[in-house]
């Protein structure tokens, strides 16, 4: 098994304008920084991006938004990005805001052969508009469909040439789910290791879901809200 590609340019070379992409990350945590930069450079346009958030104005998906490369976003929360809100309110950008749990489940379903499922989230709200409602245990649920993408772009802590991935901390979030749901999944990793170095018990995403993997570089890992607490002086 050798899913290694030489670099990010090779990884994204056949991503074309008009395609649907999934991008992992929660806020700026666990985002595929190298692939996003490569897409900005490539100039692919009219993209539909499925990602929980939209980055901030000058980092993450915000970079693609700034260059007007995104036609449509499917996300659960876009509050950190003023440019996003502006483009959305002005009608330049099409937006589907969907509940975070439904987004997660729809990506997982997309990679799992489950075409649709019922969830209580969003019942009675505008999210339910046009969707079938069914009662289970006396409680209303709405029908949601699976999400898939031409390319899923994920970011991991460690990976090997089999495509096995291990994530770190809360940088995991949507990455394992989106990895399942891409027709082609690209993984950028902080540390590329030899097969056998990752203990099989610790692998979060089995390599079967990943088609391309490369060693990422120069991760900024920007922190959105650097919150700290004070040290107590003497005995802490």
């Amino acid at each position: 098994m050798n899913k290694l590609v030489a670099n990010v340019q090779e990884a994204v070379q056949d991503i074309e304008s008009g395609m649907t992409l999934m991008l992992g990350g929660f806020g700026l945590c666990g985002i595929p920084e190298n692939c996003i930069a490569a897409l900005v450079e490539k100039g692919s346009k009219d993209l539909t991006c499925i990602s929980n958030n939209a980055g901030v104005d000058d980092f993450g998906l915000g970079l693609l938004l700034q260059k007007k490369q995104i036609k449509k976003m499917i996300s659960s929360y876009v509050g950190e990005n003023d440019e996003f809100e502006r483009q959305m309110l002005s009608g330049e950008l099409e937006v589907d805001l969907i509940p975070q749990g439904s987004l997660a489940a729809r990506c997982q379903a997309g990679g799992s052969g489950i075409p649709a499922f019922f969830t209580p989230a969003g019942y009675g709200t505008e999210v339910a508009f046009g969707k079938e409602v069914r009662y289970f245990n006396g409680k209303p649920h709405i029908l949601e469909h699976a999400l898939t993408a031409d390319f899923a772009i994920v970011k991991a802590w460690k990976g090997d040439r089999y495509g096995n991935l291990l994530f770190k901390g809360t940088a995991r979030n949507f990455n394992p789910l989106m990895a399942m749901a891409g027709k082609i999944t690209i993984a950028e990793v902080e540390e590329l290791v030899e097969p056998g170095e990752l203990d099989p018990n610790t692998i979060h995403t089995p390599g079967i879901f990943v088609q391309r993997i490369f060693q990422g570089e120069k991760y900024e890992k920007r922190i959105e809200q650097r919150t700290t607490r004070e040290r107590l002086t003497v005995n802490d």
């Binding site: 929360y77 876009v78 509940p99 975070q100 749990g101 969003g122």
Partner: peptide, 9 residues
């Protein structure tokens, strides 16, 4: 229109 995040779930 910031989005609902996990609130609806």
């Amino acid at each position: 229109v910031k989005g609902m995040g996990g609130a609806m779930d």
